[in-house]
Design a protein around this nucleic acid. Structure first.
Lengths: 347, 347
DNA sequence: CTTAGCACTCAGTGCCCAAGAGTGCTAATA
DNA sequence: TATTAGCACTCTTGGGCACTGAGTGCTAAG
């Protein structure tokens, strides 16, 4: 789209102003508050042109202009620049000094709240699909006669566990030696590889621990499905702060979406392949139930493990700021996870 | 409060009707839809009397009557009866056949959603302050040189873990023998007792594992604080279904309260000592931020471990039904937990 | 004690009107 | 040729007003 410089400036001014105030922008207001050295009449012409092109629209005849989704798109793709102020913001964010961490879940929850607090919208974080780190230790604890608790430990201190019923009687001693055997076989592999190797073992081996091995394999699958892909939502009540959602109906469908975490997960998952920060504006958003919302998502990663995080807010949001916050948080989270990973690998 | 039979019936009819429809009840409507064999004028007198006593009120001169909190209180304490229909409901609830369980957290989350679904309001479940079951096994896994993961396992298959840094070098072999020692010392004690005993040991012993023992003690404390008292909220969006909350302001403060789980927890904790189902109506509710809401709470328990669960909804809620749902769910959860406990102890 | 009747109150609705903001178009201007 | 001033027109918003209907309180009769 080739707009001349002046037209771009007008578009930017309209969108900036609309994002700020939330009310449609008229030509006179625009002429006064921005220094275009142009009369309102000229601005009217330009705005009419922008409307023609689909960047702006008219709620009704005698109202000012409002950005369309296409307008926002162009604004984000071509009009806002980050570089200049980026450092300032980053420092400011550093000051906020968040994320104590501790346990992984706790960290994710904190992150979602951090996002919410800084963006003043709703923050979401999807836990990594794959636990960080590599296999370190497996432990079998016999509870009742044939009830065994299988515990996986990674080198970053993540603990996954699953309770299984065994047909056969196996002594604690046998369990211990089996665990020792597996420890050696599996150490330093990622959990995905562990699953794979267990499966291979299962195929080749005809040993006595066959049944236990099978249960272990199953556990390794389930444990992962259960613990991965958890969704953390922070500051959902922030949604109420935006006048856009004064409508109760809208709010309702929004919170319905939050309740139904599963769907939201799937949406966020789709985006997780892409690099960098992505912005979905209004209906671009593939999750129809939260249409009327924009979504700013990014990834975080540690090693080859990837998770998604982002902000959900009204279409009229301070994209510049929110994008920076999401970007910052994703880096921050990556760094924290990386440190944990390093500590684990170091030895 | 001594009301005569007729007056009671009128009060009940008014409240029933108001709960159903949500709009104030006038004398003529009352005379028509209920079979009192009384004229509207008489009903007017009775209603005036009930207003005098503080059970009903007038939004404005030309409006019908609405129950006051005192009215609801009386309604719940003296007017509704459960026995007759109780079985019917129970069966119906059994049909809903919920709560697959699995992991404890998952069970709690399911329970909160179950409450929400059946009550058509918001369900909350507080995880037990104390993990169920008794100590079964402790495991130390060395990750890096002096970084050790301490894992507690109970006989019901609950796994708690904490990562600690150790000053001294201890071999995996030494760790194993220490774990064996603790296993014997601590088996069959509740986690609270385990903490106590660790503390005692810490005082008397001057052994080489002193430092590790201390860390273990600390871990046993932290692990518990972290994992206990988690709050699960289900079906928060149901709140939007009630016309009472058409006001966005109200909704806002409500969801603020949900965001701030910690406060909600404290509130629910206070109630956890009491037996049976408790109902807090409107401002009786000690948690001012959700005033205008009623709270129906109950406890569940397994062994000596107690948790709280309940429903949050508008003051105008179907108390009878909700009370039954909460009651049913608390029994159900107790039973499920008890079974897990039994299986653990059985051996 | 109950009931019928009547005057009164008040929220809610629909309607009209004026004010205000903003546009689109045309004609004048640099 | 691009910009500007002027003007008629459109549409929202909010206040004011009257009307309606549900419901009450009171009084007097059954």
């Amino acid at each position: 789209m080739d707009l001349n410089e002046r037209t771009k400036k007008v578009l930017q001014a309209v969108i900036d102003s609309y994002i700020q105030t939330g009310s449609p922008i008229g030509s006179t207001v625009l002429a006064k508050s921005y220094d275009f050295s142009l009369s309102s009449a000229t601005l009217r012409n330009i705005m009419a042109e922008l409307e023609e092109l689909g960047f702006l629209m008219h709620p009704h005849t005698s109202a000012g202009r409002v950005p369309t989704e296409k307008g926002y798109r162009y604004y984000i793709d071509s009009l806002i620049s980050f570089d200049r102020e980026a450092q300032g913001i980053t420092e400011q964010l550093d000051q906020a000094s968040p994320l104590q961490g501790g346990d992984l879940h706790h960290l994710m929850e904190e992150a979602s709240q951090f996002l919410a607090k800084l963006s003043r919208h709703t923050g979401v974080v999807v836990a990594p699909a794959e636990p960080e780190g590599t296999f370190k230790h497996i432990e079998f604890v016999r509870l009742r006669g044939n009830q065994v608790l299988i515990i996986f430990v990674t080198n970053t201190g993540t603990v996954l566990n699953k309770l299984v019923d065994l047909d056969e009687q196996i002594t604690q001693h046998e369990l211990a030696s089996f665990s020792g055997y597996l420890d050696e076989e599996l150490e330093r592999h990622t959990l995905a590889e562990v699953r794979q190797r267990l499966l291979e073992k299962l195929r080749e081996e005809k040993a006595s621990f066959m049944r236990l091995l099978e249960q272990t394999y199953r556990a390794s699958q389930e444990v992962q499905e259960r613990d991965s892909d958890k969704l953390f939502i922070g500051g959902a009540s922030q949604m109420f702060e935006t006048p856009e959602f004064a409508d109760v109906e809208k709010m309702r469908s929004l919170f319905r979406a939050f309740d139904d975490k599963y769907k939201l997960l799937k949406l966020l998952d789709k985006t997780s392949k892409a690099e960098g920060i992505k912005v979905f504006i209004g209906s671009e958003n593939p999750f129809f139930e939260i249409q009327g919302c924009s979504l700013v998502v990014g990834n975080y990663q540690a090693g080859n493990v990837v998770g998604t995080l982002g902000v959900i807010g009204p279409v009229r949001m301070q994209y510049k700021q929110v994008i920076q916050v999401v970007d910052y948080t994703s880096r921050l989270l990556s760094r924290i996870l990386d440190e944990r990973l390093q500590r684990g690998i170091e030895r």
